[in-house]
Design a protein around this nucleic acid. Structure first.
Lengths: 207, 207
DNA sequence: CATTGTTGAACGAGCGTTCGCTCAATATTT
DNA sequence: AAATATTGAGCGAACGCTCGTTCAACAATG
């Protein structure tokens, strides 16, 4: 996945990285407040700590900033997940912990997740599939855990059910981020995780 | 809920309604293709069948169009639901039917739902709560059904669980709309409804 | 002819993007 | 080591264009 050198010049690698980081950090904080479309390139430059001219030394189009931001956020979420979750164990507590940890990551990065969620659609035909693919990779982490559980006889699901269930975990996690206007009035994060885990695993039917 | 007369003039009611309908219809089809921000007022006017000047006889700001569109879409979804769902019965089949019907409405109006979902955030501080409230009303329909079921002893849930579960139904329905890029590769609508209903009701645990 | 409805040219703020310039740091020459 | 030349990151005024919005003129209605 080496592609996507946004400009083409041959500047100092260190500097480019540093400037990009300034840019991403500044842009995320602006996108959180006003969204991608209402944020001007000049604002991004100012928030990054350099001028509009310099900004365009490191990107070609405004949309490139959005791409870099989405890319970074996904990496951040994925890194945190990988760092904390053991996808190989395959027992029920492993699954519960994965859900718990994922929901907490979404909570901690809720602004970032919201940005990505709401603005990703503004990416061009070129970048969008690349970003969506990153999302599928995260869903695949849950699929993997579920498959291990099925192998170990913790519960039995078809492959189709595994994939759907993984999507559900993923989306219901995000839901805590993008529907907080409604949910935070009703639950704390801990309660949300607890009830949601219960509903996911056991459903609502009497047993 | 009489508020929100977007302009305030005293034109012929019939005409105002007619023009607004033209506008909403034209705008929805444009927003579906290009989103709110990339759609110009001139395009909206042309798609509505009149001129830019006339457009501004019936709205004050571009955002008013978005408000009208969101408002209409919610009404459309809610009307279809109310027309088909009996919220008073309170048995298991009633719940299943409600889910089934809701998912099919989302499927049928998927472009519209997507528009609302992605663009509602562009509404101003004034209109957004009004629209979000309409969303809660729809969630409340599911809450009502669930409460009746609990009353009838079909299953037992706390009030908190009822509300969360209603949100889950609502969001997992929308998920079929906003994640179709991933889901349509795996399931038909019928399959989606079938598996999703099963997962929602029974969870994944062995019983 | 008065009222109501329609039109689109005109406006101007604001936008993304460009490009000629600056100047400290570095390399080369003397 | 002093003098000179080269580099390229950084800059921001300026450009061209788009788009939301207005309004004086015109058309239709009754």
């Amino acid at each position: 996945m080496k592609k996507r050198e946004v400009p083409a010049s041959v500047k100092d690698e260190r500097l480019v990285k540093k400037r990009r980081n300034q840019m991403i950090k500044g842009a995320i904080s602006l996108f959180k407040q006003k969204g991608f479309h209402q944020t001007t390139t000049r604002e991004i430059a100012r928030a990054s700590g350099f001028s509009i001219g310099t900004l365009y030394e490191y990107i070609r189009k405004k949309e490139d900033v959005l791409y870099l931001v989405c890319d970074r956020i996904y990496d951040e979420v994925r890194d945190r997940m990988e760092q904390a979750i053991d996808t190989t164990k395959g027992d029920l507590d492993g699954l519960k912990l994965a859900i718990d940890y994922y929901f907490r990551v979404v909570d901690e990065l809720q602004d970032e997740v919201l940005v990505m969620y709401q603005e990703a659609k503004s990416l061009g035909k070129e970048s969008l599939p690349y970003v969506l693919n990153k999302e599928l990779q995260m869903v695949a982490m849950f699929e993997h855990i579920l498959r291990r559980c099925v192998d170990n006889g913790v519960f039995s699901l078809t492959e189709q059910e595994i994939q759907l269930f993984a999507h559900n975990i993923f989306v219901l996690g995000q839901m805590w981020g993008f529907r907080r206007w409604a949910l935070k009035k009703m639950y704390t994060l801990d309660e949300y995780i607890e009830w949601q885990t219960k509903l996911l695993l056991e459903g609502i039917m009497k047993r």
